[in-house]
């Protein structure tokens, strides 16, 4: 599974962090940090995070649960 976040679109809404806190977080400088290749177990949460993003900035490939 691969994740890509379009940083030109991301507005630090934070909903991906709520949906998949093991994959997405913010550092102290308010920069979004994420695991671009999360483990298979995270597929459900990552799919939710992508669907939850108001800016549709998250693309997920190969997230079959």
């Amino acid at each position: 599974m691969r994740i890509h976040v379009d940083r030109a679109v991301c507005d630090n809404n934070g909903r991906c962090v709520f949906a998949a806190p093991d994959v997405f977080s913010f550092d102290d400088d308010e920069e979004l940090v994420y695991d671009p290749a999360p483990p298979r177990e995270a597929a459900g949460a990552v799919t939710r995070a992508a669907a939850d993003c108001p800016l549709r900035a998250i693309t997920v490939e190969g997230a079959r649960e």
């Binding site: 630090n12 809404n13 934070g14 962090v17 709520f18 806190p21 977080s25 913010f26 550092d27 102290d28 308010e30």
Partner: peptide, 11 residues
Amino acid sequence: GRTSRLAAHRQ
């Protein structure tokens, strides 16, 4: 300017 703090509050 502190979005980084929000997830912990939500939990």
